[in-house]
């Protein structure tokens, strides 16, 4: 099946010399619910900007449902709906006008546009506000307005750049429910977020971007397992030629004096030592191996906790 989104060695260097993307490869299958996670400045919005034509790529290939943006960008664009990170509607227009205009830009006739506008404004809880100027909406309403707007042409691929930023918990949950529903109905969704919790509760697959590099691209399940594992490096007193077959923990010999073991976080270490002692392996010292992913997670999770507390 043609993937909904296919990105091959995508590079972006902005005019000011900042390289935001250092060769990204990414695939999102049709029907997927995909998270793009990463700290501030990782390059998430840059990826979305390139997909939606607001940012010109430096090099690389982007295909949307098989259509290369280099060959037929208008067609590729007709498949996607974008909810940008920052508000980008005319604040003097009303939600009703904004949705009708949006439909018009996609060539949808007025009659149908009215039906859709009514449908999506109602679903986003904005029907009562349809004739207020957009600047009079609250922050959360503005975000929902952008979601309604992105749906009016019924895109096959919906891309949301931090849709829940500044939205209270209750509305956030109802937005999640809504996104799950349209995903079930067949819309492929890509969502960027700082919140691991959000990605965890919504997404099946996840990519992690950090400083313009893709450092992880896997299923949510595997990622969580990985995150819950801890790696220790053990310096041994005597050389070890090969791993004893009796060890029931995941271990790997880096060299004859260095053993790397992986255990589930929070697991009791006594079991590890008992096993090692049984095999007559004596440990001189032990250190925790920090990897980039873990550091990032500590960072993201920390951020998440702070914001949850704030909210």
């Amino acid at each position: 099946m043609t993937p909904a989104l296919e990105i091959l060695s995508l590079y972006k260097t902005y005019q000011n010399g900042v390289t935001a993307l250092h060769g990204i490869d990414l695939q999102v299958a049709e029907g997927d619910f995909f998270a793009l996670l990463g700290p501030n400045g990782a390059g998430k919005s840059t990826v979305i900007g390139i997909i939606s034509s607001l940012v010109n790529k430096t090099s690389g290939t982007v295909r949307i449902f098989g259509v290369d943006i280099k060959n037929d960008f208008p067609r590729a664009k007709s498949f996607i709906g974008v909810v940008p990170q920052e508000f980008n509607f005319n604040v003097f227009e009303t939600p009703w006008q904004i949705l009708l205009n949006q439909a018009g830009y996609y060539g949808i006739p007025r009659g149908l546009a009215r039906q859709r506008a009514e449908k999506y404004l109602s679903q986003m809880g904005l029907w009562d506000k349809r004739d207020s100027q957009a600047r009079d909406l609250s922050g959360g309403m503005k975000r929902r307005l952008m979601i309604a707007r992105s749906l009016v042409h019924q895109p096959r691929l919906l891309i949301l750049d931090e849709p829940t930023a500044g939205v209270d918990i209750e509305i956030r949950r109802s937005m999640w429910d809504f996104l799950r529903k349209i995903n079930r109905e067949g819309t492929t969704i890509i969502l960027t977020t700082h919140y691991l919790e959000e990605a965890e509760s919504l997404c099946r697959n996840i990519a992690i971007l950090d400083e313009g590099h893709l450092i992880e691209n896997t299923s949510m399940r595997l990622l969580l397992r990985k995150v819950h594992m801890e790696t220790f490096v053990l310096d041994l007193e005597q050389p070890l030629a090969q791993l004893p077959p009796g060890l029931s923990i995941k271990a790997q010999l880096l060299d004859e004096y260095t053993l790397e073991v992986e255990i589930i976080k929070d697991q009791n270490l006594n079991d590890l030592y008992q096993q090692l002692a049984r095999e007559d392996i004596r440990v001189r010292s032990m250190r925790n191996k920090a990897n980039r992913l873990e550091q990032l997670f500590v960072h993201l999770v920390g951020q998440n906790n702070n914001s949850e507390r704030a909210a």
């Binding site: 607001l54 067609r75 920052e86 980008n88 005319n90 227009e93 996609y106």
Partner: peptide
């Protein structure tokens, strides 16, 4: 210029409009 400044021009730019 207003549309550019408010970024509402992006509505048109991300659409397939020639």
């Amino acid at each position: 210029f207003g549309a550019k400044f408010q970024r509402s021009l992006e509505e048109m730019l991300v659409s397939p409009t020639p």
